[in-house]
Design a protein around this nucleic acid. Structure first.
Lengths: 257, 257
DNA sequence: ATATCATTGCGTCGTTATGACACAATGATA
DNA sequence: TATCATTGTGTCATAACGACGCAATGATAT
């Protein structure tokens, strides 16, 4: 499984290497400066941004394919990753657009080539610790960057729709998946955790009730250190008790937000 | 899009009609005699039961393909249907098994035929009103029957795994999807609704607290009729106020079970 | 040095929701 | 007519929740 290095290679060898008709797209979430971020690729030959994606090798598990894409784009080995939806409308990819894009880039491709057939894609969302990511573009893109969630309005193909669905899934799974654990660094403050919840839920929460409830769950432990350097009172640092966290999530955190 | 009538036809025309590599499988839930039921197919040429499934026509939405499978197996037009997971392990289908099965059935198939390639399948779960279903086998099966959930132990390929995942999804989405509405007949009793919840959650609930809480949500309305014919006190009939039900589900029913 | 001020940590209070259980009403069966 | 499983309604103590008060902290301004 040699890594793909050019569009030409995909066009030439794709049909042989990969499964036809199927792809994966990844919504990679990070959290930094109290903002939810998404990793995007700027595409070659078009002034558009896209979600990182890829194809499935003929003998590769689809989850492993997504995991591989994640590794290649972020440099991180073990990443929290979940499927959330299959996007299978016949019109979701625009053949003419693809052909034009490649033409611009000086690439010749036959009209019945593997790459411009209809694809059904499985959407994955991933949660990463922002600080460890080394954004790396792939063969189809010129750069790979973190975007602030609120600044993303238009994306390649149906990728904005995919992103919106990922966010919706994140919201629904907040009580069932270790979302805080995977998005935050090992040590974090209660206001940071709250801000993460508020961003995902898109609503503000009462600071004191949030603290009480979160503490009540019993899976965050307060450390003896405080976060220094802020302009005000130094808040305590916390970390997750992963064992207790996962146990609590199995049943689902009780109550709504 | 002519309906497929025989295995021979699929083998012969499949590659032309359908997308390669992708399929759908449906876990069709019903509720009858206070039991959760699943619709299964008994396969030709093998003493095994399988989930209803199908392929995706080259110009068909994947959700529509699942919907079509549902229509053909149940005779019902509008069915509640949700994707829940993609099963994409390379080893999930066993080429040799398929070849043997067809051999038994006296069907010749080339080793590189479309049908025995690797398939990635998208699992859907469907909720239907038991009484309206007319179970109908497809080209690959000799019969189509309702099975009691608790009697299903082994299925074709990885279908038992798919079923288990569907059930897990049902459990997790109980507070977010109109599951009661779609599984129960228009009029139902509170004990019936409770039994449905208990079956899905696999735990018993206090009758009186269940009634209080369910009434408190405000989307079940008590009718003036009672269910006659039972051996004991005749319970009141209820029906859903669909508008209020859906509104409540948007935010998710608060609290756990 | 001292006052200012946003932020943090901890607590109160009234209301509501929850789990556990009691008891009377119903209506087919014995 | 008595019996009995089942249904409808209610009680009560406890826990959880939302809204809010207030003092402690520590960087910045005066």
């Amino acid at each position: 499984m040699a890594q793909i290095k050019s569009i030409e290679q995909v066009i030439h060898d794709g049909a042989k290497l990969f499964m036809p008709s199927v792809s994966v797209d990844c919504v990679i979430f990070g959290f930094h400066d109290n903002q939810l971020k998404v990793l995007l690729l700027k595409m070659k030959g078009a002034d558009q941004w896209a979600l990182p994606g890829g194809f499935i090798y003929r003998d590769e598990d689809i989850d492993e394919a997504a995991s591989r894409v994640l590794r290649e784009r972020t440099g991180i080995q073990d990443i929290f990753l979940k499927q959330f939806h299959v996007f299978g409308q016949p019109k979701r990819s625009d053949k003419k657009f693809h052909l034009n894009m490649m033409k611009k880039d000086g690439i010749k491709v036959n009209k019945d080539n593997w790459i411009i057939q209809r694809f059904i894609t499985t959407g994955y969302y991933a949660l990463v610790d922002f600080q460890f990511v080394k954004p790396t573009p792939d063969f189809s893109s010129v750069s790979c960057e973190w975007w602030d969630l609120k600044d993303i309005h238009e994306l390649f193909m149906d990728h904005k729709n995919i992103l919106d669905r990922a966010l919706e899934t994140l919201r629904l799974q907040l009580n069932y998946q270790p979302i805080g654990y995977n998005l935050l660094p090992e040590k974090f403050t209660m206001p940071e955790l709250q801000k993460l919840y508020e961003t995902i839920l898109d609503k503000s929460l009462d600071r004191r009730n949030f603290q009480r409830r979160m503490s009540g769950f019993g899976f965050v432990k307060r450390l003896k250190e405080t976060r220094q350097g802020g302009a005000h009172k130094a808040p305590y640092l916390y970390s997750f008790d992963l064992k207790k966290y996962k146990k609590a999530l199995e049943e689902g955190l009780q109550g709504g937000w």
